[in-house]
């Protein structure tokens, strides 16, 4: 049956991730050739340090996009979480770990609430999370119009200490937390039923219902996971900046979505890998680092480069999608099968 000797075939669905990997290697190599001190292990490690929060947020976004949804609230939830960290430690004087725990809980519940509205009332994810975005951002400013700095021993310790790795490379706690989150996400998506249900729903919600999968639970879980990741990202952002501010992480949802898409995940759901998201974040990180090294080039090129990549990947997905559909169904216009309209 199986050709045991053959090399593992490159599946079509792995192609986008490989493209992203190639892109990253190319970008990093270019940087290493062009700039002194670029091709070092520390620069590589810095990619994780400087983008830890984005990685965590993008991982949450990956779950949502895989399920066929979208979460526009992540940037605001990052800001709100940072704000809550600042208020909890500096104003209320609570212990750091407790504050973090509460923040993570709030984020998770916030996401779950959006998931509930999306599933139960059949509101487009885009709109429901848009409301969530307004709400979280508005709550930030309700708490404080101004930046609040975090003065807390625990936060200082975690933020300022670096863990030394062999070879003299030093990484922050934030980077380690991000990598642990990444490993957890890989495990959940690949080796648990919940993870597989996320893929199934992204492949076709009707089909998932027909196959008896817990669609409602999974959809709410997905947004709860994204809420949790955003809150965790907010905590990491607080470590990074040691402050809370309602204007933090404006537009981070776009970076997160871009990272996920550049990582090869289909925006229509059902296809993609967290490792792609990791690579996507690294690609964005390398672009930013290169612009820093360049010095004369300016930050807006990052955005332009991101959007060009975004366009390239979306167009690629679209072309692959068209070809696949043309192949698998001769009558593309045939109506949908008996839809069980679960609500009626």
């Amino acid at each position: 049956m199986t050709t045991a000797l053959a090399l593992p075939a490159v599946h079509r669905r792995h192609v986008p991730v490989l493209v992203t990997f190639g892109l990253f290697v190319l970008a990093f190599a270019t940087g290493a050739l062009r700039y002194e001190n670029f091709g070092t292990a520390q620069v590589f490690a810095d990619l994780f340090i400087d983008n830890a929060f984005l990685l965590v947020v993008a991982i949450g976004m990956t779950f949502v996009i895989l399920s066929g949804g979208i979460d526009l609230s992540v940037g605001s939830v990052v800001a709100l979480s940072g704000m809550l960290c600042a208020v909890g430690t500096s104003r209320l004087g609570l212990p750091g770990p407790l504050v973090i725990l509460v923040v993570l809980l709030v984020g998770t519940l916030f996401g779950a609430a959006m998931g509930y509205v999306i599933h139960v009332f059949e509101i487009q994810p885009f709109i429901a999370t848009l409301a969530g975005m307004f709400l979280a951002r508005g709550l930030c400013f309700t708490i404080s119009e101004k930046q609040i700095s975090i003065e807390n021993g625990f936060f200082d310790t975690v933020a300022l200490n670096r863990v030394a790795l062999p070879g003299g490379v030093r990484v922050s706690a934030g980077a380690i937390i991000a990598l642990v989150t990444f490993a957890a996400a890989v495990y959940v998506l690949h080796w648990t039923r919940t993870g597989r249900n996320v893929y199934a729903i992204g492949g076709g919600e009707q089909s998932a219902l027909f196959m008896g999968l817990p669609v409602a639970r999974t959809k709410i879980q997905v947004y709860a996971i994204s809420g949790f990741c955003s809150a965790l990202g907010g905590v990491l952002f607080a470590f990074y900046t040691l402050s809370g501010d309602g204007l933090h992480a404006v537009g981070m949802e776009l970076d997160a979505i871009a990272a996920v898409v550049i990582g090869g995940t289909m925006l229509t759901g059902g296809s993609g890998y967290v490792v792609g998201t990791l690579l996507g974040v690294l690609v964005l990180g390398v672009i930013k680092t290169m612009l820093t090294f360049e010095g004369t080039l300016s930050s807006w090129w990052t955005r332009i480069a991101i959007s060009v990549l975004l366009f390239a990947f979306i167009a690629l997905q679209r072309l692959v999608g068209i070809r696949r559909r043309a192949r698998s169904s001769p009558s593309a216009s045939s109506p949908a099968p008996a839809s069980p309209s679960p609500t009626s």
């Binding site: 537009g251 776009l254 300016s298 807006w300 955005r303 332009i304 959007s307 060009v308 975004l310 366009f311």
Partner: peptide, 12 residues
């Protein structure tokens, strides 16, 4: 979304 992401870069 593509122009939403890139547009501010173009403006800058």
């Amino acid at each position: 979304l593509i122009l939403m992401v890139g547009g501010r870069g173009i403006a800058q």
